[in-house]
Amino acid sequence: MTAVADAGLDLRQIEQFLYREARYADEHDYDAWEALWTDDALYWVPAGDDAADPRSQVSVIYDNRNRIATRLKQLRTGKRYSQSPPSNLRRVISNVEILGTEGSDTVVGANFVLVESRTRGMEIWAGRVTYKLRVVDGEIRLAYKKVSLVNKDQPLPTLAFLI
């Protein structure tokens, strides 16, 4: 883990962080993944209309820090049957761009393709991810992750792993 200066995250550091986050999710390393988040975290997977207000329209996932914790606790019980046994996952993150800053957060966009294998078959997931990254105590942390699936307007199969 590389310590970083407060200002000016460079693309290389950002990419390394995104790959690490992806690996923790792929490998169901729930503790390491949870530790990446800031206290004001928001983990959002919209349904249907990307532009809809998530407070007045349902989303696939709209987790604050508290609900991220609940989701992970449920996974850790081993009786979250939709992830027990866990899916075999590998994702590729690409087209990483620094889009700008919001306060002290760096806004990053990327595309991803993810292959999920389960007993009942293989699923391909793909979409656009928007991250907001913040340097806290010399380390990059994740304040916001929005996953906009290419097929978010279509019926989706169960999505019980960390996307």
């Binding site: 532009a51 809809a52 207000d53 998530p54 700008g100 928007t130 929005k146």
Partner: peptide
């Protein structure tokens, strides 16, 4: 970066 904001163009 309007396409990256939470609620672009909501009228």
């Amino acid at each position: 970066m309007s396409d990256e904001q939470d609620r672009p163009g909501v009228v």
